[in-house]
Design a protein around this nucleic acid. Sequence first.
DNA 1: GCGACTTTGTGCCTGCGTTCACAAAGTCGT
DNA 2: ACGACTTTGTGAACGCAGGCACAAAGTCGC
Lengths: 221, 221
Amino acid sequence: MAEPARRGVPEATVGRLPGYLRALGQAAERGTPSISSEELAGLAGVRSTQLRKDLSHLGSYGVRGVGYDVAQLSAQIARELGLTQDWPVVIVGLGNLGRALAAYRGFATRGFRVVALVDEDPALVGTAIEGLTVRTLDQLASAGPRVAIGVITTPARSAQQVADRLVAMGVRSILNFAPCLLSVPDGVEVRRVDMATELQILAFHEQRRSLADDHAEETAG
Amino acid sequence: MAEPARRGVPEATVGRLPGYLRALGQAAERGTPSISSEELAGLAGVRSTQLRKDLSHLGSYGVRGVGYDVAQLSAQIARELGLTQDWPVVIVGLGNLGRALAAYRGFATRGFRVVALVDEDPALVGTAIEGLTVRTLDQLASAGPRVAIGVITTPARSAQQVADRLVAMGVRSILNFAPCLLSVPDGVEVRRVDMATELQILAFHEQRRSLADDHAEETAG
DNA sequence: GCGACTTTGTGCCTGCGTTCACAAAGTCGT
DNA sequence: ACGACTTTGTGAACGCAGGCACAAAGTCGC
Ligand SMILES: NC(=O)c1ccc[n+]([C@@H]2O[C@H](COP(=O)([O-])OP(=O)(O)OC[C@H]3O[C@@H](n4cnc5c(N)ncnc54)[C@H](O)[C@@H]3O)[C@@H](O)[C@H]2O)c1
Ligand SMILES: NC(=O)c1ccc[n+]([C@@H]2O[C@H](COP(=O)([O-])OP(=O)(O)OC[C@H]3O[C@@H](n4cnc5c(N)ncnc54)[C@H](O)[C@@H]3O)[C@@H](O)[C@H]2O)c1
């Protein structure tokens, strides 16, 4: 039974698969041909029961008494995530952040290829960054390569219109770095990376700890 | 009753508070003095019932029949998140990403101040970036300002040792951009920002949609 | 002042995700 | 060949989070 409830992978599980893949990469470097759920879970930072349940959702199975074949499980998760093909990516907005992303070699290593760079600044359009010529959205729409995933690194005020243009071009997956909400039609998925939000969550807990510390001092002293 | 189960703010709620704060900022720009949960929820991208339940956890309350006072609610959420004080931040690893973050003006706007920059590259140490002199971790530990939050933008292989050093310096909040797991003692919180993971999740759904489309064509044709 | 209306705050229910406990299945030593 | 041991896969219990329905509370028009 290699194909159980195949179309029912829970979202929470999907969110952990990339982590498992990275952990498997580490395991592969060590040269161990197979790995137990306990050890792999340790590398991925989850409980072994959770790992096993997650893997059970993909119908994958290891060998009882032994563990999982590292190479095989890697391939299976990569296939599940759609990383067997290369996804063409466009980066829109080549400021500080967009340029850092364009220069980042980490994408290419796994299934993603930056095939276009877009900005509206006339001083940038036509110049080459990382071997790619910067274009406008118009140029991309009329004569560019097909892109599957759009990365938005423009200021927040431009993000919505950029998203609209991308959607009109057929892009259904957007990674948004601008600190704002994007409204898109059904069938288009937006994920946000928001460092300000992350910092604020850290600040919340930091403050909670500070208050706890203060209280401890108070009662102790 | 302005203080109910004050220490019981659910984690999921905390994760949405920054979004509410941003939405309130937008509302404030419009000049509306008060706002209904329905409208604010729209700006934040959640359901109004969820917004109200979230706010109820902080003991905050609006005025029935009217809504929430924008300025007051803003202040209350900011206080809850610990943004009334400035949190000193250090950025470790001044490559492409670290430099982009150092140049980013978005942090200062709300409660965070980059007070130190760290790298181990001798070519960088001693130079000035964005008005701050780059130091080593040793220099920061012995003679630097106190930092509350550490941002790690080094390659993955260095991230753990950097985290260990930060923890030894008393840092209890870490934002990690390196694609790896950090192991830290209890009482230290790590949050990760991982673009590769986000892209892989997008790829999963993209692939799922592609397969669905193929199937639709097949049955239609 | 009063009734109609608006909007908040919350108890309850439902669904999802995580953890526990254990049977199934396979390996390894003898 | 067989028994002890290891490890997986999963049914079941539990807890948390989200959404619904509704009462409470206040506003506004007259
Ligand atoms: N730099 C960071 O470290 C950082 C951190 C967190 C969040 N962000 C967010 O990422 C986004 C980009 O940040 P940044 O520092 O790189 O900004 P930036 O101002 O340096 O760059 C923005 C770029 O987008 C281009 N642009 C603007 N409107 C455009 C449009 N309609 N079409 C195409 N290109 C357009 C501009 O020409 C510019 O090159 C912002 O939303 C910012 O809030 C950045
Ligand atoms: N650049 C991106 O767009 C991007 C995107 C996603 C993830 N990341 C991750 O962010 C991290 C940084 O990426 P980058 O492209 O800026 O890398 P980079 O190689 O350009 O920069 C890394 C910097 O860290 C410094 N460093 C290394 N070891 C150190 C140590 N022990 N102490 C102090 N400094 C040290 C190096 O001197 C260098 O300046 C990496 O882990 C990368 O995977 C980057």
